[in-house]
């Protein structure tokens, strides 16, 4: 555990909590892509199957359980409790265009051809693109609530911090996981355009709205 890894995890946790609180407090999931949230629930479920087979640490187990629990709670709020506020018409990204190629890639390129390992790889690849329905939704409506941009910033920052963590681990531990690193790089790059808008607009007190 190093400082980048820890702050990355905390940033990820903050993102998840911000989104849950935003929906809960406003009693609305307007502007939130339910499809991205389902993808994240699938990501956590397929990645953390090792909860059933191995114990790493109390920190590891608790964080995994919190992530999974919050992911399903978010999906529940969007599709059940506050479904009347769900903006399905604007959440029109075709997720099969992500899930099918990512599934194929996980079968082809993995560390070990076993069910658990393929599902882990699938979750890594899927996470890297799971935010696309949300970004697509924002580009379609041309705007995002400020609290939603804080969520996206924390979520993007998390993987960027993990990149620094992997550089650290490579130099000090000789640790190198190309699948996680390349997918993490793709994931971080997808947020770059958003990071730019966040810094130039949201941090200066303006609402994030895209030119028509």
């Amino acid at each position: 555990m190093n400082v980048f890894r820890l702050t990355g995890d905390l940033s990820h946790l903050a993102a998840i909590i911000i989104l849950l609180l935003k929906i809960w407090k406003s009693r609305s999931c307007a502007g939130i892509s339910g499809k991205s949230q389902i993808l994240f629930a699938v990501v956590f479920t397929t990645r953390y199957l090792d909860l059933l087979t191995s114990f790493i640490s109390l920190y590891n187990t608790s964080m995994k359980l919190i992530y999974i629990g919050c992911a399903y709670a978010t999906v529940y709020l969007i599709y059940m409790k506050f479904r009347a506020t769900y903006d399905g018409n604007h959440d029109s990204f075709r997720v099969e265009f992500l899930v099918v190629p990512v599934g194929g890639l996980a079968v082809l390129i993995n560390h070990n051809f076993s069910l658990m390992e393929i599902l882990w790889t699938f979750s890594i690849y899927l996470e890297s693109v799971a935010i696309l329905p949300q970004l697509f939704m924002i580009s379609k409506t041309g705007e995002a609530e400020t609290i939603t941009t804080h969520y996206l910033f924390c979520l993007g920052l998390y993987r960027a911090l993990y990149l620094l963590n992997w550089i650290w681990r490579y130099y000090f531990e000789g640790f190198l996981d190309m699948i996680a690193i390349l997918a993490g790089l793709v994931q971080t790059i997808l947020y770059c355009d958003f990071f730019y808008l966040y810094v130039t607009k949201v941090l200066k007190g303006k609402k994030l709205s895209l030119p028509a």
Binding site: D9, D50, N60
Partner: peptide
Amino acid sequence: GSPVHSKDEL
């Protein structure tokens, strides 16, 4: 062989 990645990360 030894695992090229460890599952301690989230």
